[in-house]
Design a protein around this nucleic acid. Structure first.
Lengths: 234, 234
DNA sequence: TGTACATCAGTGAACGCGCGTTCACTGATGTAC
DNA sequence: TGTACATCAGTGAACGCGCGTTCACTGATGTAC
């Protein structure tokens, strides 16, 4: 009944984390596809077989890394949400800045979430599909808040949802049990897809040759987008 | 002095293309990282060593595939440009639709251009950097044309370049010798990064669960964007 | 047109390598009395 | 606190595999006279 950890438990947890850290390091060096159990084992000065005490297989390791990434992004956004000061729009801006900052600071994790799938690895879909949503929920929640604030004045063409999409979005909200309006979800998707493009191009260095300071470019475009949505900038 | 091809030359060219096709097939099956000379050889019922008659190394093969992808995208955009009917705005729309259509029809090629780098492969940078630009030039050329047409009425906030970016863009134009105005380049980058996000999310199936028909979503968002730029829709 | 020679596409074996995974094992840590 | 036993982290060898690349070779195709 004692919840105290034995030395063994502590060490086990340490090793478990160390394996993931080593795997992450491999990815940082050679891309998300470059995970190898033998490589990790060598780096940790243990036998490759030992890793099977911690992960059932290479796939299980990768799944754990992907889930960690999802959670880290979710955590970062939620923390930004709670830390942010000011009115709803200012807080939304803070969270969206965090989104990019996190992607740039953790390119490997961002790729695990949004990049090419890893060859020969197939994620259990029941785990990752809801995980994509988690960070997203923070953002659309904040957008919803903005829409109810005094800083929102509906502005064409983003004052309403394109008719072709309305039904689908409403269904999605019902199905997933979001507590947001369809318009907030719509603006969330629009914003997400716009900003995603900037981040992806930045991550692979396609944007910098043209715009130079991509952080600034992101900030400027984000502000333009939000004011197009009808949100008054502070 | 005869420019006629011998049987040997013809067969060589066929085999050269067949190797690339087989490599492409491998990528389609297992992602861009899944190219293996032995695998290709097996698929072609030849020995792995024979491939070295055609490519100096695995890296050289991949470089050829990447260049092919760049050229294919460039060709597709240029052909769309020449085929398109109507005024400048209509033609720009046609080209931008082609951009997405090509990406969706050739996801592997699109990933070779814009996706994760391939592990252990390093592209010779002098080849790929200008190649990214080629397709882009078609688009900014058309935007320039739009700006000079009667279908353009400057519209805030896209009527002018954010001051922080102006200098950089002008330098870029000078340096690369583009024959477009800084504003066209700016709108090109903005449009590119926005649409890129949609395409990337669609390619990895992140968008469809929310918006359903992603082709339609793309079309709608593209039209909204262009009219925000001040271009009159037909 | 026929012959001698040069070219070169393709072969098959070999190299050294790293991979994921399994298995019977050892020895340190933890538990029950 | 001390002892007997159970747990389990980690080992080391082995499995069968596929990889990129090299090398000396064969034999078909092309060229020059």
């Amino acid at each position: 009944m004692d919840s105290s950890k034995t030395r063994r438990d502590v060490r086990r947890e340490e090793t478990y984390q160390a394996i993931k850290a080593a795997a992450h390091q491999q990815m940082a060096a050679g891309g998300t596809a470059a995970v190898s159990l033998r490589g990790i084992a060598a780096h940790m000065r243990m036998s490759a077989a030992a890793i099977y005490r911690y992960f059932e297989s290479r796939d299980a390791l990768i799944t754990a890394l992907i889930l960690d990434s999802f959670n880290a992004l979710g955590d970062a956004l939620e923390q930004a949400h709670h830390t942010a000061q000011g009115n709803a729009v200012q807080r939304l801006i803070a969270v969206l800045e965090t989104y990019r900052a996190w992607a740039v600071a953790h390119p490997i994790d961002f790729q695990l979430i949004y990049g090419n799938p890893i060859p020969d690895y197939h994620a259990p879909p029941e785990l990752t599909v809801p995980a994509v949503i988690r960070g997203f929920v923070v953002i659309i929640g904040l957008i919803e808040e903005c829409l109810h604030s005094t800083h929102y004045t509906p502005r064409a063409p983003y004052a309403e949802i394109p008719p072709s999409m309305r039904e689908r979005l409403e269904a999605r909200i019902q199905q997933d049990g979001y507590t947001v309006s369809p318009l907030a979800l719509y603006l969330g998707v629009v914003g997400w897809s716009q900003l995603h493009g900037i981040i992806m191009l930045e991550l692979f260095n396609h944007l910098q040759p043209i715009v130079g300071d991509s952080a600034q470019y992101y900030t400027v475009q984000m502000h333009l987008m939000l004011s197009a949505f009808g949100l008054t900038m502070p």
